[in-house]
Each structure stands twice: as C-alpha cells, then as structure tokens.
C-alpha cells in the first residue's frame, strides 16, 4: 500500500506499477498480484491474460508516448498513468489534455514519476485527478497547491470556458 493524492485527498492505494528492467521482456516479466499499472508493451503483449486476472489493470504511458497508442482500449482501462521522468519534461500535460479532450477518457489519470507539489495545480487543470507524489514529499502540504489560483485565464479540462467568457457572463 502506498499513499497517493486522489480527488485532492491523500488516500491509500494498492496499484503496483510494473516497469521493464534491463533484460526483462514484456512477454515474460513477472506480474505481482493485485491491481496493476503496466507499460504499453506489456499491455499489448498480454492483454488477454491481464484482462482475465479479475483485478484492475491500467496502462502507464512514458513521456514520449501519446494516447494514440492505447486509443482503442481506453474504454476498458480504469486508470491511465502518465510518467514524468523529470518534472521539467512537460509532455505529459499534453498527453492528459488529449486523453480528456480528444479521447473523452473519464477514468483516472494518474501522474507518476517526478511529481511535485508545485506542478499539481497545472496538472489538475490538464485533467490529472490522481498523483503519486515523489517519495519523501509532504502530501498533506501538497494538497493545498490545488487552490493556488482561483480563477485562471485559460480554458482547460477543469474549466472548459476561458475567463473571458466567464467574465462576460
């Protein structure tokens, strides 16, 4: 069990994230029991096996991978993870917006990797609703970050109308 932020609260979470270490292959990597987040390669190689386990399975996307690769399966995935190798690598923000706005994905989008307090506000605006904060960071403090700005200017996932349309109303 780890603790993640979900719907702006700290909650216990029992998903295991599968990664392929050097020398491991998607076909043969050992899968722990319980809910899983697997890389695309594992999902593609072992979809039937994963779907018949009876526990939730989600896919996580690496920074260079877009939602295009799993577009056909989104309806069956309760969670999509988006990995940030470094917090300054901002590709995942576009990934999350595309998942929500282009592919109408309504499951959980979880930020993984170098996920820090000061990016939570932006991530939430792009459609992330779950955050596996980097180890050692203060979750209780971080949840305050969602309130950083009350009325941002742009249209985004959390607020599909830009301020200029709300201002006018």
């Amino acid at each position: 069990m780890t603790t993640i932020i979900k719907n702006r609260q700290a909650v216990a979470d029992d998903f295991s994230t599968v990664t392929l270490a050097e020398g491991e292959t998607a076909e043969t990597v050992a899968l722990p029991a319980g809910p899983l987040l697997v890389p695309i390669a594992v999902w593609q190689a072992r979809k039937t096996e994963l779907q018949s386990r009876g526990t939730p399975v989600g896919v996580w996307l690496a920074a260079g991978e877009g939602p295009e690769a799993i577009a056909g399966d989104l309806a069956t995935l309760p969670v999509v993870g988006v990995h940030f190798p470094k917090f300054v690598d901002g590709r995942g923000y576009s990934t999350a917006r595309l998942l929500r706005e282009r592919y109408s994905y309504c499951g959980e989008i979880r930020a993984l990797g170098d996920v820090l307090h000061d990016q939570l506000f932006l991530m939430a605006r792009c459609g992330f609703d779950a955050f596996a904060l980097k180890e050692g960071k203060d979750i209780a403090k971080a949840v305050a970050a969602f309130e950083t700005f009350r009325n941002p200017y742009q249209a985004a996932v959390d607020q599909p109308q830009p301020l200029f349309r709300r201002r006018a109303a």
Partner: peptide, 16 residues
C-alpha cells in the same frame, strides 16, 4: 493583452 492573459500560467505549456 488577450494573448498575455492566455499565456499567463498556461497549464499545458509551463514546461516546454
């Protein structure tokens, strides 16, 4: 000015 507002804290483009 309209573009300034749009670009200010743009959530998708803070880490280009």
């Amino acid at each position: 000015e309209i573009m300034r507002q749009w670009s200010t804290f743009h959530p998708e483009f803070a880490f280009l």
